[in-house]
Design a binder for these strands. Structure first.
Lengths: 176, 176
DNA sequence: TCGATCTATATCGGTCCAATATAGATCAGG
DNA sequence: CCTGATCTATATTGGACCGATATAGATCGA
């Protein structure tokens, strides 16, 4: 989903600064399947403001950097709904780990083991993060998405634990 | 994984044109977790050639567009291994579907149902494609990756089928 | 008190994708 | 047999997006 639509979506939950929009993906219930960088969020908010889909109020705090708090407008809300009524782009799951596994036969045995260990550890951390979500999900969507994420990570971990031996066996022939 | 490394990886399997490199991701064992577009493959191959990591031979067939067949060089092979020894970037799974589910409470009931139906159908197709892979996996990596993909899609489908009712219930209050 | 971390905005270089252009080959159906 | 669709094959362009970096004061722990 493009960054403009992502920003609009977050702003339907309440006003936020660009910084807070980014943070929402790191701490709260939006993790794992949606993200955007500052380098795309700030320009997106500027353009949304020009187009009247969001409005800004500048809170110049003393002795603190200015906060630009964005609110979604009525036409922004319509544009957001309209975007979700159009056919959705397909998921894109890019995995350097999976790519590397395709070439495990070219790598030293210890490297393959370390890749598996790291990937499993990171996946465990992400799963734990989804499970300890302090805040109660506020919409049925959040609950659904959090469960979906847990199901995916659990299946990945299950597969990795039961099948890693198939790929981490040292080869008789030396890697070229 | 960056497109240059992806190209090098494919070329460790044998010579190929830019077109064939792209096709490999669509038809063969590389699906679902790795991809690259023509707009990045062709420039990448040019740069790899300049740097001596791959070599080209131009097969000018009569009455057919030229084929530029790329081969990996010895230093290309080293560069590829070196890339896989560096820490891997993390997976990035972007899902417009998951994003949309976070806002199901703002959408008409039929739209939510149609999103779920479409997403389930596409996932089933991807799973089927992984399961009917004609060609035997040629490396332990391919077998592992194909099983990993199957495990992930099966878990997704299982979750969607058993939990879709939690999100597709019509709301008492009208969507704004 | 000093470094680390946090809030907050912003830009730049570079990577990558989607769309499009070109062009002949092949193949299926009417 | 012809025609349109699909396939092989390379290439470019505009735009989207990311990662890194710059700035700068606040706060907090050691």
């Amino acid at each position: 989903m493009d960054v403009r639509t992502i920003c609009l979506g977050i702003l339907t939950r309440g006003d936020a600064t660009g910084y807070e929009i980014k943070k929402l993906f790191e701490d709260d219930g939006y993790q794992h399947f949606v993200e955007a960088s500052f380098g795309s969020i700030y320009p997106a908010l500027n353009r949304l403001t020009e187009e009247g889909l969001v409005s800004v109020r500048e809170e110049a705090q003393e002795k603190r950097p200015d906060r630009k708090v964005y609110s979604i407008t009525t036409s922004g809300r319509s544009a957001f709904i309209a975007a979700l009524l159009k056919p959705l782009p397909e998921d894109r799951h890019r995995s350097p780990f999976v790519f590397a596994m395709l070439f495990s036969h070219l790598l030293p045995h210890e490297r393959v083991v370390s890749m598996l260990d790291t990937y499993i550890r990171v996946s465990e951390e992400k799963l734990a993060q989804l499970s300890d979500m302090k805040a109660e999900p506020q919409t049925p969507g959040e609950k659904f998405v959090s469960g979906f994420g847990r199901a995916v990570y659990e299946a990945m971990l299950e597969f990795l634990r039961t099948h890693r031996h198939e790929i981490e066996q040292p080869k008789a022939e030396a890697a070229e």
